[in-house]
Design a protein around this nucleic acid. Structure first.
Lengths: 219, 219
DNA sequence: CAACATGTTGAACCTGTGTTCAACCGATGT
DNA sequence: ACATCGGTTGAACACAGGTTCAACATGTTG
């Protein structure tokens, strides 16, 4: 079990800097965060930040690697964390990972290569979760598995990116608010069990989309 | 019908500046875009940008208002644009609005007040679309309508924010790629018609979520 | 104790960028 | 022809923030 947040004062300066950067990048984004802010938060001088990490961009890279590895390695905990192992439920069980998730979400926001990596991670996590659930007969995925997984990952990622906006729309403060989570769970369960579309409308859509020549290619 | 992109050279400098800013902000984000870039693109000097708009932030505000109004007023076109009037299909019919959508998506990425406004817009558009479809018997929303709409809006917004990442995961370049759109449409239709979860699993989830005391409050 | 390596500081430097401003241009009115 | 005035320019200014570097502290070795 990796240790994210024992008393920062006990950590070596280098680790304190990385932690401070991770938190600030996650809260404010990369551009809005200055090296001086990071240094202050880590109780250290600006020069030391550069001395240890080379540049602000290299520091970002270090945070990327750290957050990515940390989150990816915790994937084992995804299994067996409650009935429907959604990201939200997982986070409820691991509040200490919250800054890491916030950081990854900021990566998604930022776009570019960092975002791609994180989205891929979300896809692979969704894949594992859904595959296991399917093997247990809890659900059955559409024929185009890859697309289905990409959609699920996008839904999860999007919800995290919207973050508080979504919660506020439901009268809460944060996604983790019990009331928000409950309403979200209820609606999602309903949509994904009985469906949403009427039978006739479904037929009409199918004919329009021309689901003929199926071909799954690529990676 | 509002005119976004007739030949920019014909527009007044003030309009050219606003357009250039909208496009650049939409492509690169607010922070990465410099006033000089905007000025160059608009074929104008940096000073004039400030002279007309006061400051970079005020220029952003002007773009916000412009994009928001433009997109909100086009909502009439949402109705009657194909069978399932999703945002993707709407954009396919209105390619000239693409920079505006890109700008709004960047607002979402940026967070804060601008993002809230845009997400609210997405919610109200989803509301209109779903309500109309429901009245026509094409679908039936969950009991907690507000939550369902918030979820749909979040899905749509999230997909736009992920943007090319999602498309690339499906071997395409952009969401508007016909192949990507088709696979997305097929999977979504399947998920939202026959559902995903098994009956027994659904029952189990329902009992866990304790869907007892329903109470819709707020707004 | 001297010599040295390592970690650390904080003032100074430099670039990029938002903003200011005095001058310029061209049309219009007198 | 001259004055006026809004639109326009681009050089100059101010400042924020990433980065450099000479100095300092501390511990370690010969």
């Amino acid at each position: 079990m990796l240790n994210v947040s024992s008393n920062p004062a006990d950590l070596l300066p280098q680790a304190r800097i990385r932690l401070a950067a991770l938190e600030l990048f996650g809260q404010q984004g990369f551009d809005q965060t200055t090296i001086r802010q990071i240094a202050t938060r880590a109780g250290v001088s600006p020069g030391l930040v550069i001395h240890h990490f080379g540049s602000k961009n290299d520091l970002r890279q270090a945070c990327d690697d750290y957050a990515y590895r940390l989150f990816a390695e915790e994937r084992v905990y995804l299994k067996g964390s409650g009935p429907m192992p959604t990201l939200e439920r997982f986070m409820a069980d691991h509040p200490d990972l919250q800054p890491v998730l916030a950081y990854l979400v900021q990566c998604l926001r930022g776009g570019g290569e960092g975002a791609e990596r994180v989205y891929r991670l979300f896809c692979s996590l969704s894949d594992e979760m859904l595959t296991e659930a399917e093997q247990q007969g809890l659900l059955s995925l559409p024929e185009d598995r890859q697309a289905a997984i990409a959609v699920f990952a996008a839904w999860a990622a999007g919800l995290q990116m919207l973050g508080d906006l979504f919660a506020r729309q439901l009268g809460g403060q944060h996604i983790s608010d019990p009331d928000v989570m409950r309403r979200y769970a209820v609606v999602t369960t309903e949509l994904l069990s009985r469906g949403l579309l009427s039978a006739s409308f479904t037929d009409m859509l199918r004919s329009v989309i021309e689901p003929s020549d199926h071909k799954e290619s690529n990676t």
